[in-house]
Amino acid sequence: MRLVLAGVLSVVLVVSACGGSDGSSDEGSGGGDGNRTLNVFAAASLTEAFGELEKQFEAEHDGVDVRLNLAGSSQLASQINEGAPADVFASANEKNMDKVVEAGGVEGQPETFATNKLTIAVPPGNPKGITSFADLAGDDLTVVVCASQVPCGSATEEVEQATGVTLSPASEEQDVKAVLTKVELGEADAGLVYVTDVTSAGDKVESVEFPEAEQAINDYPIAVLAEAGQSELAQQFYDLVLGRSGQEELSKVGFGTP
């Protein structure tokens, strides 16, 4: 009975969490030669870089279908701990990777494969003339940040502590894309996001970098999962990400090297 319940619950969770994305549940990672599926659970900020690596990996491995499940790291960690079929997990912070490690879900040790740091996203042309982190404390500014429970939010808090500048945001969004959207739509004068997010947003927003961002460097760990149905392929994908071409793709979209 417990098993059935857990199954129903995790299906509901996965279905609701994945929304429109490719899903990850149907035949899992089974299948014989020439028709194998590799399920990669990756933080949403990795969308562009991992999209490229997916193509590369599929080109190099005949008959392998890489399925990317892109969502918030904590959602992905919950899904993995609830038994969602996953071979590789790339998290946007160590905290969520640790949740999976604690649950015994990781094969070996996670490895940091990229770093990210905060920047100030402003509408094109920087209409409010923001030049520093301290400028964000201005009264007449609508500033949007991440909630402290998500990685970009805790990074924001660290910067606040390091600089002694206290922000009074209009909203604490649930993920960095939501912050970016508010800036893109012009609802917010500024938002604190990752460097990579500004890169992927193209010319819809501009980035105002600030030195204090170095106080809160975010490490991205990757790991092969214990329950991986395709542990060999998973190891190869892991190697690709940490290898030279993987690092090139990541730096193209703004990630730093560990």
């Binding site: 949007v144 909630a147 945001p169 209009a170 909203s171 604490e172 969004e173 649930q174 939501a178 959207t181 508010k182």
Partner: peptide, 8 residues
């Protein structure tokens, strides 16, 4: 969350 944001 889209229209109003999220602030305690």
């Amino acid at each position: 969350i889209t229209f109003a944001g999220s602030l305690e």
